[in-house]
Simulated assay, not measured.
Amino acid sequence: MDKFNELVSTQMQTMEKLLYLQSELERCQEIEKQLDVLKQSAELEDLRIEIDRKKQDLKEIYQMFEKQTEEVIHTYQQLAVSFR
């Protein structure tokens, strides 16, 4: 049961990172729209690089979250079998 609780805790931390990164990405995209309207091309290019980096980070964290979910499910199934 300790392993299951540890996995769930780790997954919750990953979820927090995922949510934070999603909000940061949304913030950057809003700034991107504003800069595009203002035609601030140099700042816009820097921001687009940051957005691409955040998208990649988000993809990696999401993949980690999926893997953790599979591990939590597997551990839970093992616990369910051992309690029978």
Results as ranks from 00 to 15, higher is better:
His74Glu: 15
Arg84Ser: 09
Glu6Cys: 06
Glu66Asp: 11
Asp46Ile: 13
Lys67Phe: 10
Ser23Val: 13
Arg53Asp: 14
Val72Cys: 08
Tyr62Arg: 03
Arg27Ser: 14
Ile73Asn: 06
Leu7Arg: 05
Arg84Pro: 00
Ile31Thr: 02
Ile49Asp: 10
Lys33Thr: 07
Glu50Lys: 13
Val72Pro: 00
Lys17Trp: 03
Asn5Arg: 06
Glu66Met: 09
Lys67Pro: 03
Thr10His: 10
Gln29Cys: 03
Gln22Glu: 11
Glu60Thr: 07
Ser82Phe: 03
Phe4Arg: 13
Lys17Gly: 02
Met64Val: 04
Asp2Ala: 08
Val81Leu: 14
Thr10Phe: 08
Glu26Ser: 10
Glu70Gln: 15
Asn5Met: 14
Lys55His: 01
Met1Trp: 05
Ile49Met: 13
Lys33Arg: 12
Arg27Cys: 11
Cys28Gln: 11
Asp46Glu: 15
Glu45Cys: 12
Glu71Asn: 13
Val72His: 00
Tyr76Ser: 07
Asp2Ser: 09
Leu35Arg: 10
Ile51Trp: 00
Leu7Ser: 02
Thr69Ala: 09
Ile51Arg: 04
Gln40Phe: 08
Glu70Ile: 15
Val37Ile: 11
Leu19Cys: 06
Gln40His: 15
Ser41Pro: 03
Leu38His: 05
Arg84Ile: 06
Lys54Met: 10
Lys3Asp: 09
Met15Leu: 14
Ile49Ser: 07
Ile73Glu: 12
Gln13Lys: 14
Val37Leu: 11
Thr75His: 01
Tyr76Asp: 00
Phe83Ala: 08
Leu79Arg: 07
Ile51Phe: 04
Asp2Ile: 08
Phe4Asp: 01
Glu16Phe: 03
Glu70Tyr: 15
Asn5Trp: 08
Glu32Asp: 15
Val81Ile: 14
Gln77Cys: 05
Lys54Cys: 03
Lys33Ala: 13
Ile31His: 02
Phe65Asn: 12
Leu21Val: 09
Ser9Trp: 11
Lys55Asp: 02
His74Gly: 01
Gln77Thr: 02
Gln68Phe: 03
Phe83Tyr: 06
Lys39Trp: 07
Gln13His: 14
Ile49Lys: 07
Val81His: 12
Leu58Gln: 10
Leu44Pro: 00
Tyr76Gly: 03
Glu70Ala: 15
Asp57Val: 14
Leu18Gly: 04
Asn5Pro: 01
Asp2Gln: 11
Val37Phe: 02
Gln56Glu: 13
Cys28His: 04
Phe65Ile: 06
Glu66Gly: 07
Glu60Pro: 02
Leu25Trp: 06
Ile51Ala: 02
Glu45Gln: 12
Glu32Phe: 02
Asp36Phe: 10
Gln56Tyr: 08
Thr75Met: 14
Phe65Met: 04
Asp52Glu: 06
Lys67Trp: 11
Lys33Phe: 07
